[in-house]
Simulated assay, not measured.
Amino acid sequence: MREPCGGVLAFDFGEVRIGVAQGETQIGIAHPLATVTGNSNAQKFERIAALVAQWQPQYFVVGLPVHADGTPHELTRLAQRFGERLQRRFALPVYWADERFSSLYAEELLHQARVFGKKHKQVLDQVAAQALLQWFFDGGRAGGLDGTAET
Rank of each mutant, 00 (worst) to 15 (best):
S102M: 06
A128T: 04
A79W: 02
T71C: 14
A79S: 10
L145A: 01
H111Q: 13
G19P: 05
A128P: 00
L132G: 04
A142H: 03
F11N: 04
Q80P: 02
R17W: 04
L132V: 05
G144H: 00
T25I: 05
L78M: 12
A113T: 05
E74V: 13
W135S: 09
L109V: 11
D146K: 01
N41V: 13
W135N: 06
D12L: 09
Q87P: 07
Y105V: 15
Q54S: 15
A21K: 00
L64E: 01
Q54R: 15
D12V: 09
R89V: 09
A50F: 06
G28V: 12
H111T: 13
G14S: 02
D125N: 10
Q112V: 14
A129C: 10
G117Y: 08
Q126I: 09
D146S: 03
Q80H: 11
H73K: 14
N41A: 15
G140M: 03
E108F: 14
A68W: 07
Q54T: 15
P72N: 09
G70A: 15
H111W: 12
V62H: 09
V16E: 13
R77Q: 15
G147L: 06
L104S: 15
R17D: 03
I29G: 04
V36N: 00
E46L: 12
Q54H: 15
A129S: 11
L75Y: 09
P57F: 11
I18N: 03
R88A: 10
K44P: 00
T37Q: 05
D98T: 03
A68G: 06
E107S: 14
A68N: 08
G14Y: 01
A30Y: 00
Q26M: 11
Q58F: 12
F11C: 06
E46G: 09
